[in-house]
Nucleic acid binder design. Sequence first.
DNA 1: GAGAACTGTTCGTAACACACAAACAGTTTA
DNA 2: TAAACTGTTTGTGTGTTACGAACAGTTCTC
Lengths: 255, 255
Amino acid sequence: MGETTEPRTIQAVGITLEIIDYLHETDGARVTEIAEGIGRSKGTVHCHLATLLDYEHVIKSGERYTLGLRYLELGEGVKQHLGIYDVVADELDDLAGECEELVQFATEEHGRAVYLYKKGGERAVQTASTVGKREHLHCISLGKAMLAHYPRERVEEIIDRHGLPAYTEETITSRDELFSTLDTIRERGYAFDDEEKIDGLRCVAAPVNGANDEVIGAVSISGPSSRMTGDRYYEELPNKVIRSANVIEINAKFS
Amino acid sequence: MGETTEPRTIQAVGITLEIIDYLHETDGARVTEIAEGIGRSKGTVHCHLATLLDYEHVIKSGERYTLGLRYLELGEGVKQHLGIYDVVADELDDLAGECEELVQFATEEHGRAVYLYKKGGERAVQTASTVGKREHLHCISLGKAMLAHYPRERVEEIIDRHGLPAYTEETITSRDELFSTLDTIRERGYAFDDEEKIDGLRCVAAPVNGANDEVIGAVSISGPSSRMTGDRYYEELPNKVIRSANVIEINAKFS
DNA sequence: GAGAACTGTTCGTAACACACAAACAGTTTA
DNA sequence: TAAACTGTTTGTGTGTTACGAACAGTTCTC
């Protein structure tokens, strides 16, 4: 059942996009597997793949279909279009070297956080996040840092759409609690994540403003709770993310 | 006229892919502009964009539609799926520092070269090539280095499909000349590009073999003809690209 | 400030494209 | 050797889709 929320949406296009997503998730697949995966007939999937092949969006090695390098080109285009990618990369490389923890930059799209860049210091934790990965906003420091500067109705819309699912015991799951936390974050200027998404992981994040004082993303530092304590967690690292956020803001304005 | 070369291809999908390509080329556009650009009615384009929006493949800021960050995720997936990206990046960074010229890595897909990575040394030339960019194979050193190790019928197919268009006075435009050049390259082990694509630009490239001795890509060094002369052009740099190609081959086998 | 020339969106319709199911040709398994 | 898989092809009817025109807003222009 290809659920079409919007009116006047095109079924055939939806099927193709589902195939593309499926190929992405599985790193390539065969016709029957895709057909079962998206719940369509083999014949249908075959026609869609023939079209994608014709437009060189997929490649076919033997019987396996894989996403083509055109998506590398499209991804590169999106990256460059953002305009801040290079600035972010430079600054985060510095920050990672300085604090020797995992540092990340994310922006918001369609109500979720999207990681744009990550850099692990020497002893940094390894998380499942990768560039392009999407995540709920309410349970991570990056997300809360951005939400804190959104108008309330915008936050309400996002909650309506994506909910407030719990990941750990500490995840914020009520609207009231989220809004009061966001108030604190707005006043303080930075956000914490105290094991709200992953047990044993603490993070700090600060928002990055664009030209019109709109939030365009956020910088975070993540580490194991054992290392994220005392002054380091509550003062030193917050100061570092704020400083990095400022560096990105300034450099973004001159590029 | 949405020309459909393959039989049983889906028109609606073709239109959407053309819209995606158009949005990529223009860094975002409005409905009317897209409609004119791809030769379809406004209503049609509107429905396709509504679908792409529904699946979060594009974003809408005001009246402008732009490719979404999902393409960053898809591009990253393709990159990781290749398996050699990180190895290539490390080695090319070294090579660029060593020779202080533009170094590049490309692979072949659908009969054309696709750039995967580039790194400019200090005084390196700036070319229009970017990651994901596609180029004809016959007129660049990277392309010839790969073609030299393809079976003849495969090369014929590629020529049939893409032709041998001339870019400069030096571009190879006849099949016979190309095949005899490829013979030389195969024996010698590396390929030159003596202003065959861009006036004033000389390059050297060596092929990179994968697990089954199949060519999986090539490494090149490019520079202004004024600096690419004598022993440096004919011995020193060829040795460097061959060495880098070997390093990539070895590291690729252990990852 | 009125109208013209733009937008993007919605809607009805008729042509036709598409998704299905079933048949087909190869391969691998049992 | 047959059975159980592949991927591909084909015919067919229904429902989709692309179009064009009408609609509602904006932004010009004079």
